[in-house]
Nucleic acid binder design. Structure first.
Lengths: 344, 344
DNA sequence: ACCGCTCACGTGAACGTTCACGGACGCTCA
DNA sequence: TGAGCGTCCGTGAACGTTCACGTGAGCGGT
């Protein structure tokens, strides 16, 4: 018979590498048309239960799975966002990610996650890939705007933990000034006059700037040997940093940590060096990780709503996509809240 | 002039909802063909620097971004895996995820992550979506094989933390028997004869089975009031569970936790109830979270290489995709390793 | 003048779906 | 018997790219 298969008349390539079965193949095997296969697979109406079963059987036989690309091409609406996180092992970031995932799920979006492992090259690599495969990107990036632009290819970007004066991209930040002020007030009221900082970044970041500003306001010494930077944002990093601070300023009476992990490290070093916490040395964290409740003494910290940070980021993406102006100012940042426990 | 634009002669729909610009639109604006636009955008050769700049300018003007669907349709090779995690706030899972992400990145795959938040309905929902959008799925699922199959639509699946006797899908597991044996031996050698378990699941899971078996082997009592289940795998869950265990068996002298979080909770309750750890009560964890080093006393635990678990899962996916047999048996599980610290 | 080569660019076709139709068939009811 | 309707199924077309060619212009060499 001529033209039994009006569909897919291409010669069968008999390649051993067996390409993936298409809807045509299933249609042919089941003796129906593409459209009928589509109906069966997507479980739409207008199909006889019998043929549906036949089609599904054929699909099973050929191990057929619809191409998400072909499908996406014809029916719009599937949104994929990219999320770039510096370090999944720092408990801070999974919480942010959870917020992003939650908000994305509510909107029916998907999120492809990259762990850049605190490597700027990997950050850029992530951007290169995601700019091709995602409809928007949110994440932590160290590069300046122009470098990001170059790797972005026009994809909307939302920066995490950046203030408006640090970038022209849409961003979501943390109100470092408020957090540090609360913390310094707390330490000051407890009588501390010689306060050190275990910073996390080399340059004068927002937290360091706020620290210096608050120290000035309170009339405390602000020589640069009161701040030590811990390049590694971990307990070990905090331990090492505290060693150095103690060496530089043995008279220190309170320490402000860049984050909770560093603060915990500081506590451990302090105690190892024979100083009781908070008796001889008060320690203040920044993050509000739940592990702060678990250590001894429990960590006093500036709690950040990390999920909210993530949710806000998704909100920003949504605005960008809708062509609206992104949130700026106070609506685009979360404000830390002092949680007093035992360490300070 | 007639037919200046041989491309894209469809009538311009003047919809205000402005559809996304396509390669045609850019080509038209720049006065070149699609192919030339493609060359410019993908920064291939065979194009004059001048026209390239013109094209890119046009693309910028129209805010053009290539459709990842159209692109994926024509050039194969982009692999996307789905990862379903029960709870990003439990530090165990981000580490597994990190392993998956790392291995996936090495292969050039992308990973879309779902946080099912310990909700079986959400697990299924994740499957429904990912079966459409991913080329393979790896994750934690509570449902039995047949339910999973129904929501899977033929997509390859790799189960996390399942043994071969629990599923016919490819899986990656933890050698619970070995871990529990090591732990029980350790406790037994330290003189403990009345050992309780704070389990995490209701049924007789692998850890519980191993616990009972080891208790029998060592001649210890195995009445069912020696095990308490903590439905919530958290510190709070462990605290609550320990309260109950203490009520049921005040004579308990050592406790085996389902995971580190529960074990930490147990320690806290024990101390609150006036029992010193490990003096009056030894506590043993299972996971090897890094927070175990931070609590006081430091937690003795069965350390699991969580990254390796994730990497193995990706390896399994690769095998499935290649049509090979997945790893079974000892190659498909990781073996816990006893890390003795202070709590036991 | 011719050949051959390179450079810059354009043209159909193909990728695998779904959508909007339209047609065939059987049943019911007048 | 024919009109009308519902059920089931098939046919182009479209989605937005890239790939494999094809083409013409320009240039150097003989």
């Amino acid at each position: 018979m001529l033209g039994v298969w009006t569909d897919n008349q291409r010669a069968e390539r008999s390649d051993g590498a067996r390409r993936r079965a298409t809807i045509h193949d299933v249609a042919r095997l089941a003796g129906v048309s593409r459209q009928t296969v589509s109906r069966a697979v997507n479980d739409k109406g207008e199909i006889d239960p019998g043929t549906k079963e036949r089609v599904l059987e054929a699909a099973r036989l050929l191990d057929y799975r619809p191409s998400r690309f072909a499908r996406g091409l014809v029916q719009k609406g599937a949104v994929t966002a990219g999320l770039v996180i510096p370090d999944l092992r720092n408990p801070f970031f999974p919480e942010v990610a959870a917020g992003v995932l939650e908000a994305a799920e509510q909107r029916g979006w998907q999120v492809v996650v990259w762990d850049s492992r605190i490597d700027e090259a990997r950050e850029r690599e992530a951007l290169d890939v995601l700019s091709h495969q995602a409809d928007a990107v949110v994440g932590y990036f160290k590069d300046p705007d122009d470098v990001l632009t170059r790797h972005l290819g026009g994809v909307p970007l939302v920066l995490l933990e950046r203030g408006p004066q640090q970038t022209r991209f849409a961003a979501v930040g943390i109100d470092a000034a408020s957090g540090v002020e609360q913390g310094m007030d707390h330490l000051f009221r407890a009588g501390h006059r010689r306060i050190g900082m275990l910073d996390g970044v080399h340059g004068p970041g927002p937290r360091r700037q706020a620290f210096v500003q608050q120290a000035r306001r309170l009339g405390l010494p602000v020589d640069e040997d009161w701040v030590v930077v811990c390049p590694e944002h971990s307990v070990a990093g905090g331990e090492a940093g505290m060693e150095r601070l103690l060496a530089q300023r043995p008279d220190v009476t309170a320490v402000f940590g860049f984050n909770d992990l560093i603060a915990v490290g500081a506590m451990r070093t302090a105690r190892r060096r024979g100083r009781s916490v908070p008796g001889d040395l008060a320690v203040l964290g920044f993050d509000g990780l739940s592990l702060g409740e678990l250590v001894e003494p429990a960590l006093t910290t500036l709690h950040i709503d990390k999920r909210q940070l993530g949710r806000l980021a998704v909100e920003q993406v949504a605005r960008l996509r809708a062509g609206e102006e992104p949130l700026r100012g106070a609506d685009a940042w979360v404000t830390p809240e002092l949680v007093v426990r035992d360490s300070a």
